[in-house]
Write a protein that binds this DNA or RNA. Structure first.
Lengths: 330, 330
DNA sequence: GTGAAAGCGCTAACAA
DNA sequence: TTGTTAGCGCTTTCAC
């Protein structure tokens, strides 16, 4: 099969349909100003030629590009879920997405720069590690929406889950099951960790219980190490609330070598990532409402790029997902 | 801080530096035809204005866009690794990447279409599930490079790991440790599964051993289910080669409840994804050479889009990564 | 070494 | 309802 030397252009369609380029443009933008008959004729010609408007050219001539730049971390399953929801939200809001990945050898500034070169209307950053000052200076040039990280920077909108509510939900779930010695496996400096830790402490104290925070981090490894430490130093603990699902998985892996879950030890995670739902893990966890986060991010981007009135986003409520790693204290 | 109403344009830089736009273009493209002095002056002006060339406009005017479209699956950690390597390879080859995600609610044709609208020079598809006929018809319009899936379709280049060698490596590793009853947890219809299964069988027979294939699939769940079945029906097996790391993890999770690894049972995975290296998993596995795959993909894209002579890619050699889930038969 | 001018494929304001 | 005409911000050819 011979490779076409160049994709069909608007001009090609116009001449085939016997109309001007402007008409073709109107038809393909679904803009008013073309009769049904012409519309059909143009569309037929376009289909015949396999015509698809050139996106770059289209953006170039337009005042509003309706292009949103998104940075995400390839190693974060949660970011994958968010990206998916963002596509859905973007489509229904009439926006396009430009993706730029962050990875060990490709840092955030890098990923952002490449987005800027595409003249995105706004930047949606998933769990960025950038300093607030850097975020603020970015926001000076175009709207910046930070998702899943609580930062306060001038002109930056923050879309996130209400982690205080989430941690309360998790802790109260364990308390409700009759547990009294409940530990929290900490997330260190990860996005959300501060709120979850504080809320865990508050909820424990309010119930007349003593909080116990084990320093750890956001990875499976951190959870595994914390497990060893907890079993050694606090063997009487009967329930654990981990920073996230990943640390929960590492924690479980280690702890199961000497304890039965949930009969001897209950474990609850956070995020409800795909891994939590796997049948052999079946982790009780706190689910972030990804579609709602995505919708809100798009709403922010939209209101910031238009004159429509802008409202500060409110944190989104998480919900408890009961599975089989938590149970009553025996 | 006031938001700049529009990014600096080439015109702005030109007038600040007191030269023509063409000069600015030359300088920013690193093209010959400008004196050192002018170059410095232009660059200074550009920096002062925070100028960055508009990528869309740049591509529009150019004959070659040097833009490569990449589709990947957000749920595949291995794709994340590949994307990272592709960025590196693209940069050194002077190409740009346009990413398009595949997800449960966003299918492959969809992801590909959006790439086509950007007039990418070539398409790099990571583990696509598209039918060979669909791939071939795509390849009629622009070069298509399929990564990590063995397909044969007209005009489509396939860049992949030598799975026959990989499975042999895995099987021989277990045989070398003295195991004789070695099972393979199958990958069903996943990319690579056929080769790995066949090579496992051949290697076993050559060593005078009887192959045992347990039907499963590519996910943690599949591995977990296969583990149950294996323990029930073939309790004398002392070593297992799983289709990939994910199924290995599910397998391990289940099997560890009744067996010691590696003393009673050895397990080897495939892919060397990030999860395999986690200290609490520490999975012996077959590593795919991601950077080499990415380099080869870029090389193919390059030779297909230029007149440089095109060679059919050769499968890339994997290597054994010894960790702690395999050990001698006791 | 430098600049003028045409054009990439589209959008948009306006005239017919 | 339709066509004309200017751009959008850059690259590129060709004179100077």
């Amino acid at each position: 099969m011979a490779r076409r030397d160049r994709p069909a252009t608007m001009e090609d369609v116009a001449s085939l349909a016997g109309v001007s380029r402007a008409l073709v443009s109107i038809v393909y933008r679904d803009a008013p100003g073309a009769s049904e008959a012409t519309r059909a004729r143009v569309l037929a010609a376009g289909t015949k030629l396999g015509y698809r408007p050139d996106h770059r050219a289209r953006l170039l001539g337009r005042t509003r590009t309706r292009l949103l730049g998104v940075t995400f971390d390839v190693r974060q399953p949660f970011h994958g879920d968010l990206v998916e929801s963002l596509y859905t939200a973007a489509e229904s809001a009439g926006y396009e997405l430009a993706l730029s990945a962050v990875a060990p050898t490709r840092d955030e500034p890098r990923a952002i720069q490449s987005l800027l070169d595409y003249r995105c209307e706004a930047l949606i950053l998933l769990g960025p590690m950038l300093a607030p000052s850097a975020l603020a200076s970015l926001a000076a040039d175009q709207p910046v929406i930070v998702v899943a990280r609580k930062v306060s920077a001038a002109g930056v909108d923050v879309v996130r889950t209400d982690d205080t509510a989430g941690a309360r939900l998790a802790t109260e779930h364990l308390i409700g099951l009759g547990h009294t010695e409940i530990a929290h496996i900490d997330g260190a400096r990860s996005p959300g960790a501060t709120d979850r830790r504080a809320s865990y402490r508050t909820t424990m104290r309010r119930a007349g219980l003593t909080p116990l925070v084990i320093p750890a981090g956001p990875t499976e490894n951190d959870g595994a190490l914390a497990a060893k430490q907890l079993l050694d130093t606090h063997p009487t603990v009967t329930a654990v609330f981990t920073f996230n699902d990943r640390s929960a998985v590492g924690f479980l892996d280690t702890v199961r070598q000497s304890r039965q879950v949930p009969t001897e030890l209950s474990v609850i995670g956070y995020d409800d990532t795909t891994i939590a739902a796997l049948s052999h893990i079946n982790l009780t966890t706190i689910a972030q409402n990804t579609p709602a986060l995505a919708d809100q991010a798009l709403q922010q981007a939209h209101s910031r790029t238009t004159t429509s009135d802008h409202t500060t986003p409110t944190p989104i409520a998480p919900r408890l997902v009961r599975r089989t790693t938590t149970g009553p204290r025996l």
